[in-house]
Design a protein around this nucleic acid. Structure first.
Length: 678
DNA sequence: ATAGGGTTAG
């Protein structure tokens, strides 16, 4: 079929469905020769077609040749830009149009506002909104949902709510915009409430609104609601495309329901990298590092290229298990195959720091051209967990001249100062945060400050701060106070803190253990027994402590008293020799760290079998002299092992890094980076 | 006729 033989009437539908620029220009030529060129309507059609085919240049050429451009031609050009992700051009064209005196209509405003939303340009958007009111379109649902979206994308949900409540007519898109916006501002509960209101008003839900609702379920960790949403989608037979199923996977994964997430994932008829990333991140975030990394490998075996998000999650998994080898291999892969962006760089900084290489983290950080807030916050937090409070403070001081610190920055800074025992600095920067940056201290900030003071023995002051809090003090602050009181044997205030802790019904077994140990240390035997009874009744079991060490790229994990290891004899032999040398140097076992009721001699033996010691001995036996060791532990390091590791670092002349659940202990020449502040 | 709401990650 030759184009020339077609009549003008045949050309139009052909143009509508055509996605190839070359074919469009042929049709274009025929239109010119048959005199159709003069019709403004056809020209707008032509612009839209070029736009759909991604040929903005040709679209613009047609647009330029129109002698008298009416609103339709302008709209076509705006839509062409919009479809090709050129929001700046949309806004400029809109301005030019208004400048030339052409009156915008509903679609002009809709497209222009969407462009502002993408650019997060609230100021320009509000200028456009004035024009909307002037032209009498403020009650148009399309324009209305666009302004809601603008506010949502600029994080102004309060403003969006005002417009929303005033709207005379709301369709599903308006409701969805609000619900999704509220979810993304972190208020899942409110989003669900709004959805219930939407249902009450008889609105029909579609897939997009369900997607928002699923995000809400992920957000508030409500598996029950998530299951009912899933059921609803099946009953209503809503089309389940990749996006919907991916959101389901994500929702279950974020709720820790990894079996369900995996089941949905495995049944997906087609998956994309986003689906994979969602599941990988689910495993990584819930502490199943090995599963996360296995999925990344499986993905690659299937010929898929991992995207930034899946790599970021995989790195999180490496950080968790302290696997430098895997983290490095991902780094190599990225250098070869992926463009390093800011998110990925930050994930690498975090990984290197958590695998013990703070200097590598620093080097990477120095390489980043423009550092955003999260990047700064990350490096400050990294120095904090390494017990390098001074360096964290120096970085903070550089940062504050370049970018506005936020609540997370101060949380990282205060925690860094606390880990290093920089009490005066902690007090000072807490005040600066409140008075100069007008950041309302959150519970987390208070917990850092209380921790800082109590750990330094200033329990009176710490208690007064808790009393002065404007919000109701939660578990975190009382635990911080209790742990300081336990350390400094301040039984009076400690008892008060312990009682508050128990009232707040801690779910964390470690917190209950702390309370029980405190009561035992204070010789309040009845109370100690009562706490143990609570633990038993709730069926809580002590999480087994384990330590892991990476040797030649393989991770070796040890449980306390682990006798199953093939090198067990050698490990114990080495530990005995080391103990004798330590004793000669003045080491006295700190049996108060043994919580079982045993004879003194048996207690010494128990200490000897602590998992961190087994891991260290194994590492020493299987690496070359001088190699530094990284041990990761799932609980806090025991006080006696801390002392012992200092001795070992001298005897074997090695750097030993122990990363426990809270922070790093960098042992070198008989000293620890934490300066015994731990 | 055209236009508005949507999945992962530091």
């Amino acid at each position: 079929m030759r184009l020339k033989n077609l009549s003008p009437q045949d050309l139009k539908p052909l143009l509508l469905g055509c996605r190839h620029s070359a074919l469009i220009s042929q049709i274009h030529a025929v239109m010119v020769s048959s005199g159709l060129f003069t019709s403004g309507n056809s020209l707008a059609q032509l612009i839209l077609s070029y736009g759909r085919a991604g040929d903005l240049e040709s679209a613009h050429k047609v647009f330029d040749k129109i002698p008298l451009r009416r609103v339709d031609s302008w709209n076509a050009m705006l839509i062409a830009y919009s479809r090709n992700e050129c929001p700046v051009e949309v806004v400029n064209a809109y301005k030019q149009m208004v400048f030339e005196g052409v009156k915008p209509d509903s679609s002009t405003f809709t497209v222009a506002l969407k462009a502002c939303a993408i650019l997060q340009d609230l100021e320009k958007g509000e200028v456009i909104w004035e024009k909307v009111v002037e032209c009498g379109y403020e009650n148009d649902v399309f324009v209305g949902s666009s302004i809601l979206n603008l506010y949502a994308k600029c994080g102004k949900m309060d403003k969006a709510a005002i417009v929303f409540e005033k709207m005379q007519k709301r369709d599903t898109v308006c409701w969805t915009t609000m619900i999704t916006g509220i979810v993304q501002s972190g208020k899942g509960r409110e989003a669900v409430d709004l959805y219930r209101r939407m249902q009450k008003e008889g609105m029909v839900s579609d897939g997009v609104v369900m997607l928002g609702l699923m995000q809400a379920c992920a957000n508030i960790a409500d598996t029950k609601l998530g299951l009912s949403v899933h059921g609803y989608m099946i009953r209503r037979a809503l089309p389940m495309d990749v996006n919907m199923l991916t959101s389901l996977v994500d929702m279950y994964a974020k709720n820790g329901e990894l079996d369900l997430a995996t089941r949905v994932f495995r049944k997906m008829p087609c998956k994309n990298t986003v689906s994979w990333s969602a599941l990988i991140s689910g495993f990584a975030q819930n502490g199943f590092a090995v599963n996360a990394l296995q999925l990344l490998i499986e993905m690659q075996l299937l010929g898929l290229t991992p995207d930034v998000a899946s790599l970021v999650s995989a790195l999180l998994a490496c950080s968790h298990i302290g696997s430098l080898k895997l983290g490095r291999s991902i780094h190599g892969y990225v250098v070869r195959k992926v463009i390093m962006d800011q998110v990925l760089s930050t994930a690498f900084i975090d990984m290197y720091a958590k695998c013990g290489l703070i200097s590598c983290a620093r080097a990477l950080y120095e390489h980043i051209g423009s550092k955003d807030l999260i990047c700064w916050n990350t490096i400050i937090a990294c120095y904090g967990i390494h017990g390098l409070g001074r360096e964290a403070l120096t970085l903070f001081q550089q940062m504050k001249d370049k970018i506005e610190p936020d609540h997370a920055t101060f949380a990282a800074l205060l925690s860094a100062l606390s880990h290093s025992g920089l009490v005066a600095e902690g007090r000072h920067w807490f005040d600066v945060m409140v008075n100069e940056y007008n950041i309302k201290p959150s519970e987390k900030h208070y917990a850092c400050l209380v921790d800082l003071l109590a750990r330094a023995g200033e329990v009176e002051e710490a208690k007064d701060i808790i009393i002065s809090m404007e919000m109701k003090p939660g578990l975190a602050v009382w635990v911080a106070l209790l742990s300081g009181c336990h350390k400094h044997k301040k039984f009076l205030i400690g008892e008060l803190a312990a009682n508050r802790v128990l009232e707040l019904i801690p779910e964390n077994i470690g917190t209950l253990v702390l309370a029980a140990n405190f009561f035992a240390a204070a010789k309040m035997w009845d109370k100690a027994a009562a706490v143990r009874k609570v633990m038993k009744k709730a069926g809580m079991k002590k999480v087994p402590g384990y330590s892991a060490v990476e040797v030649n790229g393989r991770l070796h994990a040890f449980l306390m008293g682990d006798i199953s290891h093939p090198q067990y004899e050698q490990i114990i032999g080495l530990l005995c020799n080391l103990e004798n040398e330590m004793k000669a140097m003045g080491y006295v076992p700190k049996t108060e760290f043994v919580l079982q009721n045993l004879e003194e001699e048996a207690k010494v033996k128990v200490l000897c079998y602590h998992s961190e010691r087994l891991a260290i001995a194994f590492g020493l036996l299987n690496t070359a002299p001088g190699t530094r060791l990284l041990i990761t532990k799932n609980l806090r390091v025991c006080g006696d092992c801390h002392e012992v590791t200092k001795f070992i670092s001298v005897i074997v002349k090695r750097e030993i890094i122990v990363r426990d659940v809270k922070r790093f202990h960098h042992f070198k020449d008989g000293r620890c980076s934490c300066g015994d502040y731990w």
